[in-house]
């Protein structure tokens, strides 16, 4: 791969961006452009595939190759792109409807097969494009046009779903965390296999403030824990709190660092520890800080590599065919 000198503006298209003013998608688009510029891969070798929804308009706003497909099927289409040409850098963008409702099956299988895709789930816990119905990630009690008395369904936890599906790279970021999110996306891009990133994204029109203080830059430190491999999991305004792993329950607990006998009691984040990954993915507000960063990452051969697919050209010719017949 040739690394090119690129600027975020090199990824702009002539299309007018049509999201609502104040939509979290703008912030994500900005981050993605700067990450792509930093990665330095030619826009001609990058493909963005999307399904249907607000997030799925993403490909129109990037000067890479782009395919705006049908609802829920982006991961399946992107899988086909990789089968045909594993050399391409393929990103899949979708919302909670695309990834976890109509297309939940394809998310599951793209992850389990470990197709070399960067899967970005823009989770706003609502259906925006169809005007505000509750989504599979909406909390219990969400009032929406289709649940006027509040939803009763248990929401799906995207990171836990991904880990359950057998994903080998699971991370989480938030739209407004403009210094944190780029690092998460670069890690995701660097991972060879299916990298799953949940981006908590605010829908200003239908679900404003859905993630509370998480994506409020001034308060985020109190309600999130930033994961760094090999570093203790501390959080709070002055890093005064930490996560302690209870071996008996297999769960993390929150502790005031001052009350601990030793700083060593704070758990150190190990990206390759699947038990910790499940326990981290479990942590939700209120009561626990929401883990942001790379929750789990384990190197393993990805699909097209394991199948031995390379390039686009075929090796067969008439003589091959005669031999087959």
């Amino acid at each position: 791969m040739n690394v090119m000198q690129l600027k975020p503006s090199d990824f702009e298209t002539d299309q007018e961006v049509r999201w609502c003013p104040g939509c979290g998608d703008y912030a994500i688009l900005k981050v993605v452009k700067s990450v792509l510029a930093d990665i330095g891969r030619s826009p001609d070798e990058i493909v963005f595939v999307a399904g249907i929804g607000c997030a799925a308009r993403f490909p129109y706003y990037l000067s890479t190759y782009g395919f705006h497909t049908i609802h829920g099927r982006a991961a399946a289409v992107a899988t086909g792109v990789k089968l045909a040409n594993p050399n391409l850098d393929v990103w899949v963008v979708g919302g909670d409807g695309d990834f976890l409702s109509i297309g939940g099956n394809h998310t599951l299988h793209a992850l389990r097969r470990n197709i070399d895709l960067n899967l970005l789930l823009f989770n706003n816990a609502i259906y925006g494009l169809t005007k505000g119905q509750y989504s599979p990630t909406s909390p219990v009690g969400t009032r929406s046009p289709s649940t006027p008395n509040g939803s009763v369904e248990q929401p799906v936890n995207a990171a836990r779903f991904a880990l359950g599906a057998g994903a080998k790279f699971v991370a989480r970021g938030a739209d407004t965390l403009q210094t944190h999110l780029p690092e998460v996306l670069k890690r995701a891009h660097g991972y060879k296999g299916a990298s799953f990133v949940e981006i908590l994204q605010n829908c200003i029109v239908y679900h404003d403030g859905a993630f509370g203080a998480i994506n409020d830059r001034s308060k985020s430190q109190n309600v999130t824990v930033r994961l760094e491999h090999g570093k203790p999991m501390v959080f709070g305004k002055d890093n005064d709190k930490g996560l302690v792993f209870n071996e008996q329950t297999g769960a993390f607990e929150v502790a005031e660092i001052a009350s601990l006998n030793s700083d060593a009691e704070v758990a150190v984040h190990e990206e390759t520890n699947i038990d910790h990954a499940f326990a981290l993915a479990q942590l939700e507000q209120p009561g626990f800080p929401v883990p942001l960063g790379v929750i789990y990452a384990e190197e393993t051969p990805h699909f097209t590599e394991a199948r031995g697919f390379t390039g686009t050209k075929g090796d067969w010719d008439r003589e091959t065919l005669k031999a087959i017949l």
Binding site: V47, V49, F67, T69, I70, R73, A76, V77, A78, T79, G80, V81, K82, L83, A84, N85, L88, N105, H106, H109, T312
Partner: peptide, 16 residues
């Protein structure tokens, strides 16, 4: 079935 046709279409998009 949907993934099968979608992947085939994705492959065609990518030039196969």
């Amino acid at each position: 079935e949907i993934a099968a046709v979608s992947a085939a279409l994705g492959a065609s998009y990518a030039g196969s």
